[in-house]
Design a protein around this nucleic acid. Structure first.
Length: 474
DNA sequence: TAGCTCGTTGGACAA
DNA sequence: TTTGTCCAACGAGCT
C-alpha cells in the first residue's frame, strides 16, 4: 500500500471503468482526479470546435460520475508539467498516473512531462488503455511498420484475442482537503455561435451513454452490420466514434461486449461481429501509421504526391463545405456534418473523393474542415481517411478509383431518404431523380432552389485521371 | 533474392 | 438485368 496521495491525470480516457491509471491511483490513500486544458501543446491539432463541444460535456459527465463516487474532478488550465507540479505541491502527491496517447505532439509533450516529473522526484507511470495493441508492438517479419491493413490486422490477432477490460475501482479514496478547481465553463470550450444547438438532439456524451449506445447496437444492428453499415439513411453503424475518441469507452470493452454477444446469440452473428471488430482494427491501424509516420497529418505518405498539381480555389472549397455542390449525396453529407457534427462513413468517402478528385482541391483542406466540424475528429483516423481517399497514403485506393456521386447514391441511398433528410429542398423529387435532379422535368426543377452541379462528373473524372498521371510519370 | 500475389469500400463497358 | 473483365500501376509483404 502506498503512503502518499496520487494524481490521476485524465486526458482522453474520460471513464471510470477499464482505466488502469485510475486503478493505480486508487491504491494510494487518496486519489486526486485532474484534467488540464492545454491546447497550445497540441499545436495545429488542438481540438476543433465540434470536438471541444464534446469535451465540455464529457468532462461534465465524468465530474458527475466522480462526485457520485464521493470524489471530485479538479480542472485546471495551463502548461501540463507546471500544472502537475503545482498540484503535486498542493496535494502532497508523489505519484502521477496517466494512460498513454500516441499522437506525435502528445508523445513529445508526455516525454517532456515525464522528464520534468522525474527531475522533481515525482513518480510517473503510464498505461496502455486507448488501443488494443501498442503501435511499437506490431511489425512485419522484417521489423518494419505495416502499411497494408490486412497483414497488419492478421499479425495483431495472431497471438490471440486482446486482453480483458478491468472493472471500475471499488472506491476512489478522497483526500482530506481538495485543491481548488476551475469551473468547467471557465475553459470556454463551447462555441459562441448557436451552431452546436443541434448536437444535443443527437448526442449524449459520457461513459454511461457510450455503454448504452453499445448495448443498443449489439442488440439491434450488429446482425445486419455488414450490409447496414453502407446505408446512410439507416442506423446501421454503432456511432461510437466520438465516445471512443475521448475514451468514454475503451476498445477492450467493446471487444469483450461483442464477444459476449456472439457467445449468447450463437454463431449466426460471428461474421457480422468480425466485420464490426475489423473497424476497431482500422482504428488501431490508423494509430500505428501515425505513430510510425508522424509527418502524415500534413504531408502525404507517398512522397511523389507532394508534387501533385492541386488547385487553389477558396470559393469552390466553400461550396463543398456548405453542401452546395449540386450533387445531392455530397451535399447531404456535408449538411449532416454541419448540423449533427457527424457524417456516415460511406458518405465521408464520397465527399472526400469528390473534394480531392472532382474538385482537385488538396486533401489537407478537407482534413482541416473535418477536424473543426467532426465531434469524433481524431488525428489518426482523419489522416488515414483523407490520405486513403486522395490515394497518397497507406493501402490507398488506386488512382483511377473515383467515386461517382450519382451511382453511389443510387446504390446506397436508393430511396433517396438520406438526401431528403439533409437536403429538404429536394423533397419534391422522386427516387429516380433524387440523385441527379438536373435531368428531372423542368416543371419540377423550377419549383426548387437547388444549385446545378458545380462540375460535370465525367469531365472532372478525366481531369483527375490526367492530374494523377502527371505525378505517375515524374 | 527474386518472384509472386494482393490490395475495405469503384466504374465503364461488353457480353 | 446481371455478370465478368479490364482499367493499369505499384509497392508491401511473404515465400
Amino acid at each position: 500500500m502506498e503512503s502518499k496521495p496520487a494524481l490521476i491525470w485524465f486526458r482522453r480516457d474520460l471513464r471510470l471503468a477499464d482505466n488502469p491509471a485510475l486503478i493505480a491511483a486508487c491504491r494510494h490513500p487518496a486519489a486526486v482526479p485532474v484534467f488540464i486544458w492545454s491546447p497550445k501543446e497540441d499545436g495545429n491539432w488542438a481540438p476543433g470546435a465540434a470536438s471541444r463541444w464534446w469535451l465540455h460535456h464529457s468532462l461534465s459527465a465524468l465530474a458527475n460520475a466522480l462526485e457520485a463516487e464521493g470524489s471530485q474532478f479538479i480542472i485546471r488550465k495551463g502548461p501540463s508539467l507546471g500544472t502537475l507540479l503545482q498540484l503535486a505541491r498542493e496535494t502532497g502527491a508523489r505519484s502521477i498516473y496517466s494512460n498513454r496517447l500516441h499522437e506525435p505532439l502528445a508523445l513529445q509533450r508526455d516525454t517532456h512531462v515525464a522528464a520534468g516529473l522525474q527531475h522533481a522526484g515525482i513518480r510517473h507511470e503510464s498505461f496502455d488503455a486507448s488501443l488494443l495493441f501498442e503501435p511499437w508492438e506490431i511489425h512485419s517479419r522484417d521489423g518494419n511498420p505495416f502499411q497494408v491493413f490486412t497483414p497488419f490486422w492478421r499479425t495483431c490477432l495472431a497471438p490471440g484475442e486482446p486482453g480483458d477490460p478491468a472493472p471500475k475501482p471499488r472506491s476512489i479514496p478522497a483526500p482530506a482537503r481538495w485543491p481548488c478547481s476551475l469551473a468547467l465553463d471557465e475553459l470556454e470550450l463551447l462555441p459562441r455561435l448557436r451552431w452546436a444547438d443541434g448536437f444535443h438532439k443527437v448526442w449524449r456524451p459520457g461513459e454511461k451513454a457510450a455503454h448504452g449506445k453499445l448495448s443498443d447496437f449489439l442488440r439491434g444492428n450488429l446482425a445486419g452490420y455488414p450490409e447496414g453499415r453502407d446505408l446512410p439513411a439507416e442506423a446501421g453503424t454503432s456511432r461510437l466514434s466520438p465516445h471512443l475518441h475521448y475514451g468514454e469507452i475503451s476498445p477492450r470493452q467493446i471487444w469483450q461486449a461483442v464477444q459476449d454477444r456472439v457467445r449468447r446469440s450463437g454463431p449466426a452473428n460471428q461474421a457480422a461481429a468480425g466485420a464490426f471488430l475489423r473497424q476497431l482494427g482500422w482504428r488501431e491501424f490508423a494509430h500505428h501509421l501515425l505513430y510510425h509516420f508522424p509527418f502524415t497529418p500534413e504531408q502525404p505518405l507517398r512522397a511523389n504526391f507532394s508534387k501533385f498539381p492541386w488547385r487553389k480555389d477558396a470559393k469552390t472549397l466553400k461550396v463543398w463545405q456548405k453542401g452546395l455542390t449540386g450533387y445531392p449525396l455530397v451535399d447531404a453529407g456535408m449538411r449532416e456534418l454541419w448540423e449533427t457534427g457527424w457524417m456516415h462513413n460511406r458518405v465521408r468517402m464520397i465527399v472526400a473523393s469528390f473534394l480531392v478528385k472532382d474538385l482537385l482541391l488538396p486533401w489537407q483542406s478537407g482534413a482541416d474542415w473535418f477536424w473543426d466540424t467532426l465531434l469524433d475528429a481524431d488525428l489518426a483516423n482523419n489522416t488515414l481517411g483523407w490520405q486513403w481517399a486522395a490515394g497518397c497514403g497507406a493501402d490507398a485506393a488506386p488512382y483511377f478509383r473515383v467515386f461517382n456521386p450519382v451511382l453511389q447514391g443510387e446504390k446506397f441511398d436508393p430511396s433517396g431518404d438520406y438526401v431528403r433528410r439533409w437536403v429538404p429542398e429536394l423533397k419534391p423529387f422522386a427516387a429516380k431523380w433524387i440523385h441527379k435532379p438536373w435531368i428531372a422535368p423542368a416543371e419540377i426543377r423550377k419549383t426548387v432552389n437547388y444549385p446545378l452541379p458545380t462540375v460535370n462528373h465525367a469531365e472532372a473524372r478525366d481531369r483527375a485521371l490526367e492530374a494523377f498521371s502527371f505525378i505517375r510519370t515524374r
